[in-house]
């Protein structure tokens, strides 16, 4: 693994205002992402996991500026892309691409597969005429689809095939970094494996860097070099995937890992599960201090008073917890 940092996120915050009316002056907001920081190295896969509604997708979308962040810095190759204007951003969009979660919603039903994949070629003036057609065929073959299907419409394909089309679309601009926004969670298990293996092959062949957003821990373990665990818009633990699964330090990570089923009924019956009490607090009105304290088995007084920083606990193992 090369150590060159390709993407650096510093204190990224994204709040969504609620009920924005003419007369209402009270500004409630959804605290979707509350200051996350991480680095992404060239050629690695960073898994971003957490339960539904913890801000993983929002984080991904904010990094690529589909949402304008409330505050924070996103540095791509050393430059803050959040200050870029539309024209400068267009150049960045050739390098950072995204794969979406829902293969049924992420393809325009009124466009042929060829036009869907070729759209970026038109936007960035990369290829025209015969060259464009050739490039589309090449991309279809790269993701294991039949080039004859270029004139078909998305509804004629299965979920797995559609996800491949989505991947071909993101590859069309030769990106360096791909944000995978739960690319496999809408697919069934056998197809998941196909897509994940294909993503790994593509990474090797094209030298891609992935930010892999998911909630399926076993799949993330398989594909990621490092994993960041999110809870209510904050990263609570960040380390390499081996360490995270063997020696999780944060109580939330420990609870998450204990929830993974083990495919052996004897072990499964014998082991003690760590079950969290209660529900995730509302992101509209998050608790003070450590967001996890309301459900944490180890919570102390200090947890309500101050927010724990993400601190290195030896060898690139970062944890945000007062009780370690």
């Amino acid at each position: 693994m090369k150590n060159e940092v390709i993407l650096e996120v510093e204190n990224l915050v994204k709040h969504f205002p609620l009920e924005e009316g003419i007369f209402s002056r009270h500004h409630k907001k959804v605290h979707a992402v509350n200051g996350i920081s991480f680095q992404l190295h060239q050629g690695e896969t960073l898994g971003l996991v957490g339960e539904s509604g913890c801000g993983k997708s929002t984080a991904g979308r904010t990094i690529i500026r589909l949402y304008e962040p409330t505050s924070g810095i996103v540095k791509y190759q050393g430059k803050n892309i959040l200050s870029y204007n539309a024209k400068e951003m267009l150049a960045v969009r050739r390098d950072i691409q995204m794969i979406f979660q829902d293969p049924y919603a992420s393809l325009n039903p009124r466009m042929t597969v060829g036009d869907i994949i070729g759209e970026a070629l038109d936007i960035h003036h990369l290829a025209r005429g015969q060259k464009r057609t050739d490039r589309i065929y090449e991309l279809l073959e790269t993701v294991g689809l039949n080039p004859e299907h270029a004139n078909r419409f998305p509804h004629e394909f299965s979920g797995g095939q559609r996800q491949r089309i989505g991947i071909a679309r993101s590859l069309s601009v030769n990106p360096k970094l791909i944000i995978c926004d739960e690319p496999i969670s809408a697919l069934d298990v056998s197809i998941q494996a196909q897509i994940v293996n294909m993503l790994e092959e593509l990474q090797e062949k094209l030298g891609l860097t992935y930010l892999f957003i998911a909630h399926d821990l076993s799949m993330v373990k398989h594909i990621s070099h490092r994993i960041a665990v999110m809870y209510l818009g904050r990263i609570v633990e960040l380390t390499d995937s081996f360490t995270l699964y063997e020696k999780p330090l944060h109580p939330y990570t420990q609870a998450l890992l204990s929830a993974i089923p083990i495919p052996d009924p004897d072990i499964e019956a014998a082991r003690q599960r760590q079950v969290l009490k209660g529900n995730v607090p509302s992101p509209i009105d998050p608790p003070s201090g450590c967001y996890f304290r309301t459900r944490c088995p180890k919570a102390q007084e200090v947890c309500a008073l101050s927010t724990p920083e993400l601190i290195e606990q030896g060898n690139n193992h970062w944890v945000a917890c007062h009780c370690i």
Binding site: M98, A105, L107
Partner: peptide
């Protein structure tokens, strides 16, 4: 808000 529109924006469509 559909993902295909987000995808187009990611690709740089105006």
């Amino acid at each position: 808000e559909q993902e295909f529109v987000l995808a187009a924006r990611t690709l740089g469509a105006d």
